[in-house]
Amino acid sequence: MNQRDLELLSSYLDGQLSPSDSARLESRLKADAQLAAVLNDLRATRTLLRKLPARRAPRNFTLTRKMVGQNPPLPRAYPFFRFASALATLLFVFSFGLNSVSRMTAPVFGMGGGGGDASSEQSIELYAEEAPAAATEPPAATEAPAEPAVGMAPAPTMTAPAQEDALRMVETPTLPAADMGNAVAQKLVEAPLVSITWQIVLGAAAALSALLMLLMRGIAASRWR
C-alpha cells in the first residue's frame, strides 16, 4: 500500500473525502481485503487515542494581575502630577546646572567681568592690574613734571605738589577700574542666574508632586485588592 492510499484511508476515516472519492474508495475496500484491514487498524488506533482519559488540570490556571503585569487603575489626576513632578525635577536640576555652568564659564568673559569664585576673582585682579597699565600711558606726560622735579632738587617745595599731582594722576585712572571689577565680581557672586528662592520652590514642587503620586498609587493599590 502506498502513501497516497494511506492518506485516503485516514481522510476517509475522518469524513474528509468528497462523495465521489469516498464512493471510489468504498468500492476498492470491498475488493481489497488488505486495504480494508489497514482501515480497520487506523480506526482502532484512532478509537484508542480518543478513549485516552482526559486528565483534569492539576490546579486552576487562572491569572493574577501580577502574572500579567497589570497595574491598578489610577486617578485621572495622576498623569498631571507625574508630569508636574518630572518637569519640576528637570527644572530644579537644570537651575543647578545653569548656575554651575555660569560660574565655570566666567573666565571666558573675564575681561568684561563676571563670576564670583576664585577663578573669576583672579580675572578681576588681572583686569585691575591691566587697567592701571593702560591708565599710566596717558600719564606719560606725568613723567615730564616728574623729571623737572628731580632736576630741580633744590626747589623741593615745587616738587612736592608736582609729585602729588603725578601720583594723583597715576592713581586716579586706577580707581574706577578696580571699583568696577570689584563691583562686577560682587554682583556675580551675589546674584546667580537662578535664585535660591526659585530653586527651593522647584525642589518643593518636585517633592510634593512625587509624594502625591505615591499616595495615589498606594490608595489605588489598596482599593484594587
Binding site: R56, A57, N60, F61, T62, L63, Q70
Partner: peptide
Amino acid sequence: GSLDAFNTLVLHYQDSVFNTALR
C-alpha cells in the same frame, strides 16, 4: 483588558489545554 472575563475562559479551557500539553 478584563482579567475576570479571561479567567472565565481559562476555567472553561484549562483541561483541554493541559491535556494537549500533557500529551
